[in-house]
Write a protein that binds this DNA or RNA. Sequence first.
DNA 1: CGACACGTTGAGATATATCAAACGTGGTGG
DNA 2: CCACCACGTTTGATATATCTCAACGTGTCG
Lengths: 246, 246
Amino acid sequence: MFTDKYLRRRKETLTDAERAVLEDGVAKVVELPPRKVIVEAGETLSQSTLLVDGFMCRYIDDRNGFRQLVAVHVPGDFVDLHGYPLRRLDHDVAALTTTTVAIVPHGALDRIVEQYPAMARKLWYSTMIDAAVHRAWLFRLGRLDAGGRIAHFLCEMSARLEAVGLSDGRRFALGLTQADLAEICGLTSVHTNRVLRTLREENIVTLRSSQVEIHDPARLRRLGQFDAAYLYLDDTTPWASPVGNL
Amino acid sequence: MFTDKYLRRRKETLTDAERAVLEDGVAKVVELPPRKVIVEAGETLSQSTLLVDGFMCRYIDDRNGFRQLVAVHVPGDFVDLHGYPLRRLDHDVAALTTTTVAIVPHGALDRIVEQYPAMARKLWYSTMIDAAVHRAWLFRLGRLDAGGRIAHFLCEMSARLEAVGLSDGRRFALGLTQADLAEICGLTSVHTNRVLRTLREENIVTLRSSQVEIHDPARLRRLGQFDAAYLYLDDTTPWASPVGNL
DNA sequence: CGACACGTTGAGATATATCAAACGTGGTGG
DNA sequence: CCACCACGTTTGATATATCTCAACGTGTCG
């Protein structure tokens, strides 16, 4: 099963049988080039996307062509599962890097939800983690200054990537430019650059060509007032997350 | 049925039979005093709260005792339905004003979800609207300046209250102090006060002792770059929202 | 009448944006 | 193999939005 690659690294929340059912629903696996937009706001959707490899994001455009990222996705995430109940989205979805995605038609989800109530619950739960991440992002934008926002985001990425075996808590690849990071944190790229410099100079964290190296995790967490509880990573309720961190 | 009061005002999305089922699940109806905290982050929940009357909010505390509101609820909203799948929340839930709430034990939801798959979908959908609102708030905090944030929020409240018959699109009661508004918009209350003054002076909107009067809806919308699509108010899919705007 | 919460105003400090330019570097075509 | 281009990064100088601190006003309610 291709989902083995990352999905198994996490606290097992989908049973093997359930993962098989989900994979049965996969219509095809595709590679997307960097920056490829796969969903535009308002479109009616007939499928959802499971991210197998690479990084994706979701964003809302403003009037002046600037955009606010509202989510970043790592391998194992069910990127637009919320599009299944919602039908049409309020934002765009795009690849950040070259990615591999598995396409799950909504018809397949209909069947899964009907036949396997336990999976229906886990899918719902999964979308609720996504919402919890939104709330953490609200906190980040509303209450933290530039340094705190960047620190908080890097902590989140480290935790989520570690959960799927893509970070050791110190170093990881992150397919983001400084401009992307700015769009996540509600800052200009110029200011983001300056803040990254001081973070580097103070020996807290270094970000170079999409490689992140955390030198002082404790200070980074404190700067970002980061508490990973909202990621529900240790959850083992019958509701627990079906895939990746979502 | 007590839910008639507001729930019927909206595009009918729960059938009468379904509303009856939901009301059957209500264990009790209670009144809460202003500022009453009903859920604290991390607690394990065994019930969810339907807001019948008044205003409630959800918020995340920072280290210094400041807080960021992550949601505001109006009558008809299922305030912490996400607590049903999540079990424990990543934030607090509190009343803003004196409120009336209906308590729905999670056991009752279990029964509903098992017996009525169509309602299970509608409940899921409802939590997805809540998440869509989170994303609009991310846009607000990340991309708009102080005036834009306040304008955007007031547009949202006007639209949501209008949907439940509590606003005529021009005037409505909003149980918020300027300090609350500041915590919603990621601003200080001092700055919020100044921005409100210019909004009043420019004859766009007046907020006086929790009464909002919109003098120039078009300019307010433009200022806040507001587009109500994310509220999915006109949705009539089989998924459509069960209650209030959530 | 006093207390308390909420709203208002002022002066000054600071974080972040803006505009403009230069730099590095990996890739590409001649 | 070099020249050059595109893209991301870095830096400087200046403008501006928002915060901070401190004080004062105003209404409401016991």
